[in-house]
Design a binder for these strands. Sequence first.
DNA 1: GTTAGCACTCTCGACGTAAGACTGCTAATT
DNA 2: AATTAGCAGTCTTACGTCGAGAGTGCTAAC
Lengths: 341, 341
Amino acid sequence: MLSERKKKILCAVVDSYIETASPISSKDIQENHLRDCSSATIRNELSALESMGYLVQPHVSAGRVPSQKAFRIYVDELMHREPLTVAEVDMIDRYFAQKWSDVEDVISAVAKVISEVTHYTSVVVKEDLSDCIKVIKLLDLSNGQMLVVIVTDSRLLKDAVIDLPQNFTSEMLVQAENWLNKIFVGRHISDFINFRYPYALVNSQFEQFNALFKKIIDVLKKVSLANGMDVVTEGSNNIFNHTEYKDVNNARCFLSTLEHKDELARIFTDTDDDNLAIKIGSEDSVPEGCSVVSAKINLGENVSGNFGVIGPVRMNYSKVVAVLDRISELLTDMLNPKEQQ
Amino acid sequence: MLSERKKKILCAVVDSYIETASPISSKDIQENHLRDCSSATIRNELSALESMGYLVQPHVSAGRVPSQKAFRIYVDELMHREPLTVAEVDMIDRYFAQKWSDVEDVISAVAKVISEVTHYTSVVVKEDLSDCIKVIKLLDLSNGQMLVVIVTDSRLLKDAVIDLPQNFTSEMLVQAENWLNKIFVGRHISDFINFRYPYALVNSQFEQFNALFKKIIDVLKKVSLANGMDVVTEGSNNIFNHTEYKDVNNARCFLSTLEHKDELARIFTDTDDDNLAIKIGSEDSVPEGCSVVSAKINLGENVSGNFGVIGPVRMNYSKVVAVLDRISELLTDMLNPKEQQ
DNA sequence: GTTAGCACTCTCGACGTAAGACTGCTAATT
DNA sequence: AATTAGCAGTCTTACGTCGAGAGTGCTAAC
């Protein structure tokens, strides 16, 4: 629907604007992108693109600035995918040369490398809501207390100390453990947020189990809430590299977004089936003036992760996408051999 | 060494400057603080205070601004301790009305309430390096794996899954557990960072225990490292309430400090025996232009915590101190009855 | 020792102006 | 019919001037 030349010009405007953060003039485009036609021709095209809603003019004697609609079509159709520089590849590979021993380390390293290479603020979200309970163990701590250990599919362990009811014997503990496993094994952790206490099952047994069961269910509920999300951000001070955050109100707004981890997690995890999602401006309740590029990865059985960057709409999408692609690749490489082992 | 009147005037300058963030004139002081002498007299005193290094003048026709030295003497000697307003007390109490079930909840709530009431950025540091091991449990997960649970003084639990050596029976597990407890109970978690493997003890026993013991010691080492510090910050966007951070470079520098958790922890935990420490400007490697007010609290047996605020040198010390005092009080109230229970 | 008064200095905002950046339009060209 | 050169018109921005206002330091009187 857009002519080839219009596409070329629009792409040039967005590219230049991403680089310079200031309005782009017809002369700029002519000199740097379209040598073979005059600035007057380009002016005509710019005018057309403006009335189509792709460009706006801050004032009459200024150049053009891309609208949100322009950024949308830019990332969907126009953008060139530039390869990473050698230095950037090196930087990423250096991070991945280390050996990590647990998921937390991976998360923090991924957050660091993304923010370092892209110069934007990075966000990594780990989500293990789909974790399945494999076995529950009750452990007498021999001081009137008991340790509840919940082992899940992904080997992530949750535990808590519970006071034992009076006169509780070791045998009763074993029995309680059996019952708990009968009820809960195979269930998903997330189910417990709205779990209703199964009186029917328990009332048929010793009365004194009741209190214990209630407490254990509380632990499960708590665990399922606490482990819903793990959100890590890195490089929040990178926002000051970008002129849009010279304005203090924008910066405050941005930082406040970063502090609302739950909302942030929602933005980064709420993706279609695509591996890579780009949300621009106020789309999908991304904060006004911000864009989010996020990717998805499996962090192991039933544990998925999302990672990406959040920054101004005037973001270097090409570079960010390349970085995220590369990291996706390295992460899957890292995780897959493990599974064959 | 300073005359009473000089003290009064210096205090007035600092108080006013904290409030208005702009240079204070002799007239200001005369009108708001020292009705009983003329502005000319105050001018003379100001001039004297300036040559003593307590005040500086941005330019000749401006008022005076307190120097770092002035802030030091202000918090040490001059400052009035104003009580909190009813609204502020309410706000704090409302937070403490909730029941918290674990240390993490307390930490996050304390961070939140401090930043909300003071309008500065709050920092809470939990340090449990001195945790003592109370008991170690080995738990057969019946799938060739074993769960190591370490219970410490402070009831903070650490655990990890370990692959069992081949042909390991339940009885051997019990035996291993006994040995582990014999060796490690009573030791401090922090000792394991440099722990040397006690061959003498183990070599006298079954050879196949060796591999297991090594793995467990690795777990202990890891745990002791990972649990060294827990640093939580809240309200980083509060910095924009304060004029000194209208300057983007200051803001960037401040945020970068917040991201270096280890350095931050050092600043907040490195206190004398005092319960409350105030560090101003570049003292004790606090970042240039920043001040830190921190308090200490016991978060349980052998677990100490530090909490406080970080903000501009021009900080409302009086209010911050009052807030931290109140929270200290409430925290000890909350923790002490627990111990009597 | 304190104070009134005054000259002096410096900042800050308002105003006007000139230069420069781009555009849109018109008319000529291909 | 599309393209282009040229030019008038508009708006921003930087700069310099100017006057008002704020505050001091000094002097001389109290």
